[in-house]
Design a binder for these strands. Structure first.
Lengths: 214, 214
DNA sequence: TAGATTGTTAATCGATTAACAATC
DNA sequence: TAGATTGTTAATCGATTAACAATC
């Protein structure tokens, strides 16, 4: 019976959660939509709408309980359960993600790293088990992971996505340059490094147009 | 006299550019809004609107010239000029960005890496000059960089942003957990690692709710 | 109770899509 | 010229903001 959570709201959920954690750490137990709005640079109306949509609850006259809202967000995003991650590709990015120790603290332990190019990086600096690509089919079903990080060449990304889908992976965090086409019941977030730089370059161009350097 | 470029359109610009480059590489010289729409998973009307807003031009009856559109996007995003980058922080992420060789090929050469914590990572695996934080004020003005990558602890990010602004940096690509508040004439893109994982977790939760595993 | 703030409906704003005249 | 597709105005759709009644 839960209401439709719009795309922009989905994108805001982690920020709400982050701010609840910060407030809690600061010992703040209650907060009004007005104060939270100032903090998060959001319109208070939007905050009330958002909380309403996700069926959170406040107390009229007082505001929202930080603890309650935090726990509610946690539950909605499924952060109470651990989500295991596998990493595909052992180049720079793959290694970095695999070795990022803090992921486990946040409930996202990296449980395996698959190496597409065995000769590529011989030295094992990884803190997690490394397997050859050929063992994907036998290993993945037992690892209990639903999230995969794709850090591999553009050409291989789509093919790998399909393969992982068949193995039960339902969410992809990709760093490849490809525009991936996932099945309907698979989530993809693509971090395009170059897109980010290009957007920043665009912004600089705009600013320079508005007020040219003498 | 150029028309207002909406936020969603700004986000789409790099994708248009990417597809133009791909089409060019494939030897395609002309493309209709309908075909491009299929490729990019966009409504053809939107494509025509977008191109119109950025003042690109097609030929009625035929479509758009790939080369022309590519060059036009390049110009709009300022990709014809090189945008030098400095990297702040020498942890895992900082090193990775600094050593990413392909950035230079795309017109974004990393020209310096500043180390906030000199003892932190003694071995210099960096392919670019490394300077101590203390030299920021003397070095940055000469480096001619407008973009800075922030790969440092949450607490230090906002302070560093202000400092870099005073040194002429006008665009920030941050990996910190902080919600940064830039001046009006500074652009910030914040890559929240955990937000991404939380959103993927949320999607998985939603999918499981829709069709629970037996 | 009075004061404050939520919860929710209604109004507005902006982006996407549709439609079709202009034109290559 | 006829056919096709752009360029652009108008319609629709959806998200944000405003307003205010409900209620703690």
């Amino acid at each position: 019976m839960s209401r439709y959570v719009s795309e922009p709201l989905v994108q805001r959920l982690p920020a709400y959660y982050r701010h609840m954690k910060e407030l809690e750490a600061q010992g703040v137990t209650e907060i009004t939509s007005r104060n939270l709005g100032e903090r998060m640079q959001l319109n208070p109306c939007q905050i009330r709408q958002d909380i309403n949509v996700i069926e959170g609850a406040g107390k009229q006259g007082f505001g929202y309980s930080v603890k309650e809202l935090k726990e509610h967000l946690q539950k909605i995003m499924g952060l109470d359960q651990h989500r295991r991650i596998i990493v595909l590709g052992r180049g720079r990015t793959g290694q970095e993600i695999a070795n990022h120790p803090a992921f486990a603290d946040e409930g996202f332990p990296v449980v395996a790293l698959f190496d597409l190019d065995p000769g590529h990086l011989a030295q094992s600096t990884a803190a997690v088990p490394v397997y050859p690509e050929a063992e994907l089919e036998t290993r993945v079903p037992d690892l209990g992971a639903k999230i995969a990080v794709l850090a591999l060449p553009t050409e291989k990304a789509q093919e790998m996505l399909n393969r992982l889908y068949d193995l039960g992976i339902r969410a992809i965090w990709s760093f490849s340059r490809a525009d991936l086409h996932p099945p309907r019941d698979m989530a993809v977030v693509n971090w395009h490094l170059y897109d980010t730089l290009q957007i920043l370059s665009y912004r600089i161009s705009q600013m320079e147009e508005e007020s040219p350097r003498r």
